[in-house]
Amino acid sequence: MVFDTAWLHGLGGGLLIGLASALFLLGNGRIAGMSGITLSSVTNVNTRAGRVSATFLLAAFAGALAVAAWLQPIAIEVTDSVIALVASGVMVGIGVTLANGCTSGHGVCGLSRLSLRSLAATLTFMGAAALSVFLLRHVVGVSL
C-alpha cells in the first residue's frame, strides 16, 4: 500500500480543487465541470462563455506549471503506449459527452449538491474504471 504523506497532499490538493470550483460557481455562476469547460473552450470560441472557459484552462495549465517548477520532481507517470492513449482518450471523450460530466462535474459538483443523477454517474464511472484496471492488470496481465 502506498501510504506516506500522500493522503495529506490529496486532502490539501482536494480542498484547493473544491475552493476553485466554489469560486467559479459563486463568482461566475458556472459549474466547474472540466469536460464541459474543455469542449466549450474549443467549440464556443466566439462566445464569452467559451472565452471564460479557455481562460480557466490556460490558468490551470499555468498553475500546474508553477507547481511543477516549485515542487521538483513532480511525477506524471503515464503509459507510452500509443494504442492505449488513443483508445483511452476517445472513450473518455465520447463517454463524458454522453454523460454530460466527469469526475469534476458529476463527482465533485454534483455529489456535493446531493444529486442522484450525479451519484448514479459517479458510481458507474468509478466502478467501470476499477473493472477496467482489474481486467487490464490482473486478467490480461499488462502493466501500461
Partner: peptide
C-alpha cells in the same frame, strides 16, 4: 445515456488514468 456514457468514460479512464480535469494540468510536464 447517463449510464452508458459514464461506463464508457470509466472504462477508458482505467486504461490511461487521465480524466478530463487532469488533462490540462498534466500537460504541464
Amino acid at each position: 445515456r447517463l449510464f452508458g456514457g459514464s461506463a464508457l468514460f470509466g472504462l477508458g479512464w482505467g486504461v490511461a488514468g487521465i480524466c478530463p480535469g487532469a488533462v490540462v494540468p498534466a500537460l504541464s510536464v
